[in-house]
Design a protein around this nucleic acid. Structure first.
Lengths: 239, 239
DNA sequence: GAGTGGTCTAGACCACTGA
DNA sequence: CAGTGGTCTAGACCACTCA
């Protein structure tokens, strides 16, 4: 009957607040109680509360400002989750006009491969989307996405004809865990046609799966044409 | 004459310790003074020292254990700097025998393109290396590396005939800042021959530049054949 | 100006673990 | 078992910034 040792109180406080944020009780922008009131709520000193809030701020879940107080942070850009500054941000900076085009939309029970892609064990309904993103006249990324409707019921009635699903999802399921997989693959017939490149040309493929808690939310495959685009990241051991 | 506001004391303490580690005064494994002695050295309370050491531990520069004290951490694997668990680790786990083969070695003044690759303004001497890494009979990565000899003089007398330069560099210049660039490119004649793949086949190219402080150390270009390999990373907003 | 977070102090007790 | 780090307290002063 060995009980696990109780976590430090600052961890317990941070987890309690994190749970309320992840559950959606506190949406982005919602104020966090002040340190003084958290001291009263949890019956501990201010340093302990401070340390809990510090961890949440460092993790990016909340923002803290003097006098203004602490608030649930606005969700980061989907791409920024990777810790990598990527192409779309560069394109936005370059000033080329951005355009989104939906190619396909289908609502259906998930097939075997689709369940595997989302990491689902049992039957489920999915929304399958195909789309292109343009910088100026040029398609710079091809998107192939599955959305797990049980996790995001509101997506069922969304057409995604003009709103990119990535952006829409961020505003509806802001806090995710994500897994990324980057590989290089030859363009198939579909990719080649959609991106206006030769068949067999190299594609930079970024596959991302996201969860909210334990529930799979979406699986997306982004194909970038050839050597024109790259993911860039900068890191220091010292942070 | 506005002086910049002084940094918090815990930041100043952390920077002082970080400088000694990055300068190599304290090699990996070297003990960090105890909190008590740092309190005396910097004339502050234990919480302040603790916070400085906490930041360094979180950044991975030091390890902390009760009773044993704090020590400079062993350098992370080069690939782990990316925060990405990659192929080579998987290959090691799969049990396939690893083999390294040097293809070329040249000591020369850096040309214009090489200076640009390293991010050097003025003239410099470089060691240019070509190598292959095998998993069993199969070449899984082609390496093309420049080493800035002024930053790592000891490399001049190293043949790298049997020791992979990445591993050698880690043990000689353990603490780096790194920039990564990932792209997909078609295999040229040289890459195709070296990796035994068709010309034009997709390559996953990881280009990494590292600095020690402000000094460029090395620039490496790693080519992974086609869709067989992928970089995988997992991230949570909550850390 | 008042209330918030950011930093800091001078203690304290505890858990862990290497000598 | 003694010394280390991990946590916590009950204060304090300051900087910033919104009302």
């Amino acid at each position: 009957m060995n009980a696990t040792p109780p976590p430090p109180r600052y961890v317990a406080i941070a987890e309690a607040l994190r749970a309320r944020i992840l559950a959606g009780d506190w949406p982005p922008g919602h104020p966090i109680p002040t340190e003084a009131s958290l001291m009263a709520e949890f019956g501990c000193s201010r340093m302990t509360v401070y340390r809990a809030l510090w961890g949440l701020a460092e993790a990016g879940l909340i923002t803290r400002r003097r006098r203004a107080g602490s608030h649930v942070a606005a969700p980061r850009r989907e791409e920024a989750v990777f810790g990598i500054h990527d192409i779309e941000a560069e394109i936005a900076r370059s000033g080329a006009p951005y355009r989104y085009e939906r190619l396909s939309r289908a609502l259906r029970p998930a097939g075997r491969a689709e369940r595997a892609r989302l990491g689902l064990a049992g039957p489920a309904e999915v929304l399958a989307l195909g789309a292109r993103h343009f910088a100026g006249p040029r398609a710079f990324v091809l998107e192939d996405r599955l959305i797990h409707l049980a996790a995001v019921p509101a997506a069922r009635s969304e057409s995604f004809a003009t709103v990119p699903p990535g952006r829409w999802l961020l505003s509806h399921v802001p806090w995710n865990e994500a897994e990324h997989r980057i590989s290089a693959e030859p363009a198939g017939a579909f990719e080649a046609a959609a991106l206006a490149i030769p068949r067999g040309a190299p594609l930079l493929v970024l596959a991302r799966r996201t969860w909210s808690g334990e529930v799979p939310v979406t699986a997306v495959r982004l194909c970038y044409p050839g050597p024109d685009y790259a993911l860039v990241g900068r890191f220091r051991p010292g942070g």
